[in-house]
């Protein structure tokens, strides 16, 4: 319990310290763009694969559960749209990104810690937490919601594709079902989740890397810890957001 409070306090101080003493804007901007490329562009492939399959599978399984002839097929469209927007696109995608982006960030920063590169930054008079962490967080908070938007579209497309390939219903029926009950608010919830999860992934993994102690072995452990902790906190935050907003 003590350890939990220690870590929580250290995490809060760490995040706060990032916002003190920014460095030159030009360098900061360059680093942010670089990280946006790493985090965003580098993850499009995996996000595409996951989204299409999750959308397709959700459609088939919803169809399997709705066996009653009284319920029109287009309801599947409604259900797939809502569950994608509300839960699958932000949460599943972010859990996977926690694995990909989080492990990468934690091992990069952890390696800089154990090879004294972070000390070197500090000795030069650079605010190392801000220099390393802030561009990653900003890049994540910009790019991950973009990825979630893409994931939303791809999940619906995956659903439509699965429905028409298996002769469940034609695309326009699916779309009609999806549009009938569409509420803008679900998009707001989806984006809120994306923003919060993006912050959790990037800040947690920078934090884990930054406080690595030891050598190569501990860098690996920091990577694992970053992923597991981000995942748990994402699920926890997911619950809270659902409770507060819905």
């Amino acid at each position: 319990m003590n350890k939990l409070f220690f870590e929580l306090g250290r995490y809060i101080l760490f995040v706060r310290s990032m916002f003190l003493k920014p460095e030159r804007f030009k360098i900061f901007f360059e680093r942010t763009v670089h990280e946006m490329n790493n985090i965003g562009v580098g993850s499009i492939g995996i996000v595409t694969i996951i989204s299409v399959f999750v959308g397709a599978v959700t459609t088939l399984q919803t169809a399997y559960q709705l066996v009653s002839p009284l319920i029109p097929m287009k309801v599947i469209g409604t259900i797939v749209l809502d569950s994608s927007l509300l839960e699958f696109a932000p949460t599943i995608t972010c859990l996977v990104l926690a694995g990909k982006v989080g492990a990468h960030i934690a091992s990069e920063v952890g390696n800089m810690r154990v090879t004294e590169q972070i000390d070197a930054l500090e000795v030069m008079g650079i605010n190392s937490s801000g220099f390393l962490g802030l561009p990653k967080i900003i890049a994540g908070v910009i790019m991950i919601p973009c990825l979630i938007i893409v994931a939303n579209f791809l999940m619906i497309s995956g659903g439509i594709l699965a429905a028409s390939l298996t002769d469940l219903m034609p695309p326009n029926e699916f779309i009609q079902g999806a549009r009938e009950t569409f509420k803008m608010f679900t998009v707001v919830v989806s984006m809120t989740k994306a923003l919060v999860f993006a912050f959790i992934i990037t800040s947690m993994s920078t934090y884990e890397g930054y406080f690595t102690e030891g050598g190569a072995l501990e860098v690996g452990e920091a990577g694992t810890r970053a992923v597991t902790r981000s995942c748990v906190i994402i699920l926890f935050a997911d619950f809270i957001i659902a409770k507060l907003m819905l």
């Binding site: 003493k21 390696n111 800089m112 090879t115 004294e116 590169q117 000390d119 070197a120 500090e122 000795v123 030069m124 008079g125």
Partner: peptide, 23 residues
């Protein structure tokens, strides 16, 4: 104060045991 510490640090160079080059 921290601000002046940073001023002094800009006059400091350090060679680390493990080099600490940015890889």
């Amino acid at each position: 104060p921290y601000k002046q510490v940073r001023e002094v640090r800009r006059e400091i160079g350090m060679l680390f045991q493990a080099n600490a080059l940015f890889d």
